[in-house]
Nucleic acid binder design. Structure first.
Length: 452
DNA sequence: TGAAATGTTGGGGCG
DNA sequence: ACGCCCCAACATTTC
């Protein structure tokens, strides 16, 4: 034996359908997770994601124990950790499933080059996405910037691999691991009553979703109903792979497109970030960086706290704070409100989501916010402004969702539930709207129209 | 993956 | 019976 094969776990916190693990298992496997938030730069993982990671690592550790080996956890600079391991035990290769966040990609290229020069095998795989972003280009040889043609190409040419067989591990190493507790990932916000991080939780949510997937197109827009898959954090951390989901759903659903299209949005987000790595911090349409954004913190704080006076906005923001998640329809509404009604820079919204969402994903978050702000590729046109009252009436007609998250509004009749300030009876402990939507919309349209 | 403004149509009330 | 007006209801355009 030349030495051990390190399986460097990234956002692939699973054992099943794991290309890097399968390949590495032709030799002696040494599973590794490195915690190095500093190397993630400006967008290092937020508190909600940290909570998730803590529990997901615990689950992965258990899975490896069942397989007869041990997950090694180390913290600090990834390169130093690898170097340290190389000094502790003979290493033949390092295997991992790629991540595409710009700072990590840069770092990993460096690490790969150095280790290769030391005669260590470096093997990178596509573990967490259906496509490799560099491989898909349009007819003119450029990256797609519009979703629809991108999705058509993927749907036409889709022949994803089947989920891989689970690796067998026959050798147990004796390498030291840090304790998960010592990574200090936990903070005050806990979500155990809402979520079960790890493989088991992922499979459970998938099972629940599979049973109702035929209702998806009808139910997915109603925030009071869990009609969406609720797989986003599991997918983000790679506890389940998109291949597993695709294979399971492609033939079993009546109309396969609506949900699978969401998976393609996920691909598009990653693809977009790969081809526009600066998009995390700059508007894709660069003119928007000079937009006269409102820099005062007052409106931003009211939005964050769920105290804008618009029920659908406040319900969404409170759901986010309390559960680490928000229904996708509501994400669009609150996003539009922050950017268009309050004229706050989309990056402020992106930062808040980044910190508070358990499914915070740099690619999806960046694309989503640039989309609502109108500055991204294939973005919502500048004049598309969501009306929080109409959206509420349309997607939460009885106010079920709103009342659930805003107890102050329990007794407001349905008629006024989305515009309580117009109700004959004043609600004392709920704030009046911080802006007048009609006025704010007009103001935004003027700004957007004149310059952008 | 909008909403508001504007235009058109058609039925009913009424002189 | 007829024309006029009003206004929903729907369609189209515009932001």
């Amino acid at each position: 034996m030349r030495g051990w094969n390190i399986v460097w776990h990234y956002h692939d916190l699973r054992i099943e359908d794991n290309p890097a693990l399968v390949e590495a298992a032709s030799g002696h496997v040494l599973p590794l997770f490195i915690y190095c938030p500093k190397e993630e730069g400006k967008w290092s993982q937020g508190t909600a994601s940290n909570w998730w990671l803590h529990h997901s690592l615990q689950e992965l550790s258990k899975e490896y124990q069942k397989l007869g080996t041990k997950l090694v956890i180390r913290s600090g600079s990834a390169f130093k950790v690898l170097e340290q391991l190389i000094s502790e035990i003979p290493i033949a290769g390092v295997y991992w499933n790629q991540r595409y966040e710009p700072t990590l990609r840069k770092r990993d290229r460096k690490i790969a080059a150095i280790l290769k020069a030391r005669d260590i095998d470096i093997c990178c795989f596509e573990g967490n996405y259906l496509i490799t972003p560099s491989e898909i280009l349009n007819k003119t040889g450029k990256p797609y910037s519009v979703f629809t043609p991108f999705s058509k190409t993927l749907l036409k040419g889709c022949s994803w691999r089947s989920p891989l067989p689970t690796a067998q591990i026959n050798h147990r190493h004796r390498v030291r691991s840090e304790k998960i507790e010592d990574l200090k990932l936990l903070s005050k916000r806990q979500f155990s009553d809402q979520w079960t991080p790890g493989r088991k939780g992922a499979l459970k949510n998938f099972e629940i979703f599979r049973k109702k997937v035929d209702e998806y197109s009808k139910q997915r827009e109603i925030p009071s109903v869990y009609g969406t898959s609720r797989l986003s954090p599991h997918l983000h951390f790679g506890e389940i792979s998109p291949h597993e989901i695709w294979k399971e759903l492609e033939h079993k659903t009546k109309d396969r497109s609506p949900f699978l299209l969401q998976l393609i949005w996920r691909e598009f987000g990653n693809y977009f970030l790969f081809h526009s790595p600066q998009a995390t911090d700059h508007s894709w349409k660069r003119t928007f960086d000079e937009f006269p954004w409102n820099k005062s913190k007052q409106n931003l704080h009211a939005w964050q706290k769920g105290m804008t006076g618009y029920p659908i906005i406040d319900a969404g923001m409170r759901e986010l704070w309390q559960t680490g998640w928000m229904h996708n329809r509501v994400r669009m509404i609150v996003g539009s409100f922050l950017v268009k009604d309050l004229l706050v820079h989309w990056i402020e919204g992106a930062k808040w989501f980044w910190k508070t969402l358990v499914d915070a994903d740099l690619a999806n978050n960046t694309l989503g916010w640039q989309w609502v702000a109108g500055c991204g590729p294939d973005a919502a046109p500048y004049f598309r402004v969501f009306n929080p009252v109409l959206q509420g009436k349309k997607f939460d007609p009885k106010g079920t969702y709103v009342r659930h998250w805003i107890p102050e509004l329990t007794d407001v009749p349905d008629k006024w539930i989305h515009n309580p300030w117009e109700a004959p009876k004043i609600i004392s402990d709920y704030p009046p709207p911080i802006v007048d939507h009609a006025e704010a919309r007009q103001k935004a349209l003027n700004f957007y129209k004149n310059k952008y």
